[in-house]
Design a protein around this nucleic acid. Structure first.
Length: 104
DNA sequence: TAGATGACTAATA
DNA sequence: CTATTAGCCATCT
């Protein structure tokens, strides 16, 4: 089990219509302090259609920079299709964590 | 092998 | 309130 595999596995468990934070994923894979590497793994290996990396946001509910997804419009569309509205503020996409944060 | 890097977070100033 | 500093730890150079 590599770090990357653990990350992808955890991200796949995020239910449709919800989002999770990097810190939460790190905790799920047994590396509570490796939130950065969670993002790093997704950055290196974004298997679109397999790992829903658009459901992973930072602690503020802000999504990753647009370039990481090939365009923020793509990302916003993916979330919108799952029933997760995004708020565009100052060029950055935000999700309402109080409503859409995944709570196991 | 060592040092720099970053899709993060929390704690200070 | 915003801005800066400091830990974090798997990759990359």
């Amino acid at each position: 089990m590599t770090f990357d595999e653990a990350v992808y596995n955890a991200v796949r468990t995020i239910p449709k219509g919800k989002v999770a934070t990097y810190g939460m994923i790190a905790l799920l894979i047994g590396r509570p302090r490796a939130a950065r590497q969670v993002g790093g793994s997704l950055h290196r290996n974004p298997y679109f259609g397999d790992v829903p990396c658009h459901r992973v946001v930072n602690r503020e509910g802000r999504l990753a920079p647009a370039f990481a997804f090939g365009g923020q419009n793509v990302q916003a569309d993916l979330l919108a299709r799952e029933g997760v509205p995004t708020e565009l503020r100052d060029g950055l996409l935000f999700v309402d964590l109080n409503e859409y944060l995944w709570r196991p």
